[in-house]
Design a protein around this nucleic acid. Structure first.
Lengths: 419, 419
DNA sequence: AAATTAAATTCAGGTATCGAATTAAAAAGC
DNA sequence: GCTTTTTAATTCGATACCTGAATTTAATTT
């Protein structure tokens, strides 16, 4: 046993043991908030339901729900369709949706999307905006965001001061805590002070995060992850990203960089990735990786297609039609996807993996074959295999994830204000 | 937007949003316990120190420390070497070590190790036991464990009923919660009801876990991880294992299987692993992987060495002496280690990676070259690089990790008993 | 010896929760 | 139709836990 691990030092003073940092006790939400969140999560819940789920006494339930009702956050539901059974019928509670509204926005290179959501988490209106696909200044982006917010407010017949908070998700390296963007493909400048500029311009609190985290939040709040405490979300778009939920919370990593599944190495000295390294998963799976091989496989008609998207579509059609070279491309991409997923399973042991992304429409990628290969590449020693779900959703779902971010901040604030 | 993510269903009843499972609120320890753990972590602490660290009022500190002192868990330190400064001198508090004792045990194929630790976390005595290296019945193992506990008790001059709990770490698939062992290389039978049998035989509570988790706990409680909230521990022994600390707590995965870094794939259709698959990291790094190539490299004298350990030592000597083939073996192992570590960094973004294992004595593995390669394989976009530490510690450290497991359970119990 | 400074204690008061007794609202039994 | 049964919700006293201001204690400085 060497240096660090000896406990008695020479002075005879015990040096102690155990973690030096206290657990983040911020995770212990006050009871009132837990009740509110349970009601919102369930859609509707009776007091008895709250008592059973949260393990509190009947007295507390009465008092705390009364607080929430007085504060205008919850209400009793009148039109209860009488359940069968004897005894006094339970009165359901529900969130009053009109208390607060938030906007969630997903920024992309070719289009931005927005969702306006009420306090119950229901989408009220959506909007989207086509934009030129090139890096912009922060001011330009904010102008586009402003126009988009106008649109979605108009569609929902609300005005700006109805909005309690805004959430924005974008690709790149995003510092969620600081609200800054060290780097993003959408921005021409590095280290943009995004949140500060936004708040100065629109006078609404902004919550900013990486887009893979947004998608993960969407699954945690609205999707298949709601019932799981630990799961991973893998997104295959231009790049390959990942989000992780651990103990019902989004895990953001220690240094705030995204979880870059796309740049894990699956082959020593393998294919060249746009990040400049070799053997990244992305270099076998992303749009540009397929596109550059497509040019070879479809040699004769390569010049017909200029957009990578059209090229991929053509490649897919060819593969379906029996073109051997085209099929090989997809088959290899599928195999590497299997490897990437298997690695995630081995390292995290999640209960569920959700694969998401519009490119999922090329169903080669989520073919049973890929999943079977993934399971084959995973040690399973008698345990139940990790379930995999595939969701091919559009930008609006990402935007809804952004509303979740804003919604949870607004909820914290609204419930804490009761005191 | 498709099915799952729509929130209003046809009945008009809101379906709700947000995570359905509540956060584990077990993480909110009562103040008394936080104080106790802070004093133990610091070795010694004054009440004022407690006030500042935990952010509680002076009144609470007095009352709660008085409880802990009355309960016989803490005591004031008399011999305070007077610090310079005016005002009433602070009285330091410390844990009374003799309140409770625990034993931590690491089971291996060739030897078992044990540490007897007092309530302050200081090792009182150690013992180890050579054993035949073959799978055994649960009864045989428990007999060996019994003998080992006898030894360590004798060395510490304690008797069995001084022991409040025992922690055991072993390789294989271990269900920590249930206290069962679905599979382990040390046990001849599957699905052993380890903890129940142990407790029936020795009448002491047992806490059982995977050995990689034990090592991670050792780093969290006694080592370099104490000051970090998120870090990873990689262990290279017979296999390649990993442990993960997230938010100051050990992450155990959703299905209770270990985090199997060793079986992540670093090469499609690569080297054959003992798990039967191809391209596992372990197949390039573990003892047996090096040994099987060593036989080729040292062709002439391959027959002289029968133990894999001796073979590796010979290989290492040869490499140092300039044998090209031997050097190639180590160089390749080093490169794949870089890939494995880089993948962990990309997927987890930990603040610190600790590499541990006796095989670390072959310093090729922790050569700066490997770390440099790892950093090269990692996206670093301006952020501070992930630090890597290497620890070449023996089985006793693993055993101390097992004491941490027992210690934390005993602490919970002892502090809760005050009420 | 008096003033200053810092640590620790005392104690009144507040908040949050529990738990037992009570009230409320329905169905079932006679 | 009235009572009993059953379940939901409320009321209210008791209590654990913590804060914060005032006070006491024990040292140093002047």
């Amino acid at each position: 046993m060497s240096g660090d691990l000896s406990t008695k030092n020479d002075s005879g003073i015990p040096s102690g043991c155990g973690p030096l940092l206290p657990l983040g006790n911020a995770n212990t939400k006050p009871m009132r908030q837990q009740i509110f969140e349970h009601v919102r999560a369930a859609g509707r819940a009776t007091r008895t339901d709250v008592i059973r789920t949260l393990g509190i006494s009947a007295g507390s339930a009465t008092a705390l729900t009364a607080d929430l009702i007085n504060a205008g956050l919850l209400r009793e539901v009148d039109s209860v369709p009488r359940e069968t059974g004897r005894g006094r019928p339970a009165v359901a509670l529900e969130v009053i949706p009109e208390t607060n509204f938030v906007i969630g926005i997903k920024l992309s290179d070719e289009a931005h999307s927005a969702v306006l959501t009420d306090f119950a988490g229901d989408a009220v209106a959506t909007a989207s905006l086509q934009t030129p696909a090139h890096p912009k200044s922060l001011d330009e982006i904010l102008t586009e965001v402003g126009a988009l917010m106008q649109d979605v407010l108009a569609a929902a017949q609300k005005n700006p001061n109805n909005i309690a908070a805004v959430g924005i998700g974008m690709s790149g390296i995003v510092d969620h805590q600081a609200g800054t963007v060290p780097w993003s493909p959408l921005l021409a400048t590095r280290n943009s002070d995004f949140a500060a500029k936004f708040e100065a311009r629109f006078s609404v609190p902004l919550h900013l995060d990486n887009d893979a985290n947004m998608l993960t939040l969407a699954e945690l709040w609205f999707g298949a992850g709601r019932a799981k405490s630990d799961f991973a979300v893998v997104t295959i778009e231009q790049g390959v990203g990942m989000g992780l939920v651990i103990d019902n919370r989004l895990y953001r990593g220690a240094r705030g960089m995204g979880l870059e599944l796309g740049h894990t190495k699956v082959q020593l000295d393998g294919a060249l990735c746009r990040c400049g390294q070799r053997g990244c998963l992305e270099a076998y799976l992303a749009d540009y990786a397929l596109a550059r091989e497509a040019a070879t496989a479809l040699h004769q008609q390569a010049n017909d297609h200029h957009s990578p998207n059209a090229l991929l579509t053509a490649l897919f059609t060819q593969a379906k039609a029996g073109n051997e070279a085209a099929q090989t491309i997809f088959r290899r991409a599928g195999r590497y996807l299997s490897v990437g997923l298997a690695n995630v399973v081995q390292l995290f042991d999640p209960a569920l993996i959700i694969i998401s992304g519009e490119r999922m429409q090329y169903d080669y990628l989520y073919a049973d074959e890929v999943l079977a290969e993934m399971h084959r590449l995973t040690l399973n020693d008698g345990r139940s295999a990790c379930t995999v779900e595939t969701h091919a959703w559009g930008d609006l779902v990402w935007a809804r994830g952004a509303t979740a971010l804003a919604l949870s901040a607004v909820t914290d604030q609204a419930v804490a204000a009761i005191s």
